[in-house]
């Protein structure tokens, strides 16, 4: 346990979500769930963020935006796909403009399924991603490639 898992800062991006999952992400910040008690902050700035929360499926239009945000995040960082849309594309996967889940574009570390994903499972997913954040940092400092990427389903 290092400081990384004590103060995870989040950037939240709405790909083509129906807004259901976004409302649930924002619900985590309300007094009822209050994720700030775990040190989690919603930064709105990729350069300050450790965790990239994506809701909704990836489409041709927002592909570039997602890559742009991801490239601006300092390492180590993790990607959490929120909702079944971000996980696999859900019912929209057959649409002509939809590419699919976020993992078609970026290496997703934690999948949080659900339509919409409940705040409890979103928090659970973020907490699960902290262990991956730690292991990525270890890999960064030791340069040890043997530590393999772990993807977990929250």
């Amino acid at each position: 346990m290092s400081y990384l898992s004590k103060s995870p800062w989040i950037i939240h991006y709405d790909a083509s979500s129906c807004n259901g999952c976004d409302i649930e992400v924002l619900a985590c910040l309300t007094p009822l769930y209050d994720v700030e008690r775990f040190g989690i902050l919603n930064t709105g700035n990729p350069k300050h963020a450790d965790i990239f929360l994506i809701t909704g499926s990836v489409n041709e239009q927002n592909k570039a935006v997602i890559l742009n945000i991801y490239n601006q995040m300092p390492k180590p960082n993790v990607i959490v796909a929120i909702g079944i849309c971000a996980t696999s594309g859900c019912v929209f996967r057959e649409c002509y403009n939809v590419i699919g889940g976020v993992d078609k574009l970026l290496p997703v570390d934690v999948y949080v399924p659900g339509c919409a994903a409940r705040p409890e499972s979103i928090i659970d997913g973020v907490v699960k991603s902290l262990a991956i954040l730690e292991s990525k940092h270890l890999k960064m400092t030791s340069g040890n490639e043997a530590t393999q990427e772990i993807s977990k389903v929250a």
Binding site: Y3, D34, E36, F38
Partner: peptide, 27 residues
């Protein structure tokens, strides 16, 4: 946080934040 009806972060949270920032990459 208490004024807003939330539980709030630990008192030492600013130190955790700074400690974490030192572990991150500089862009």
């Amino acid at each position: 946080a208490r004024l807003q009806g939330r539980f709030g972060p630990p008192i030492l949270q600013p130190f955790y934040d700074v400690g974490k920032l030192f572990l991150k990459q500089t862009l």
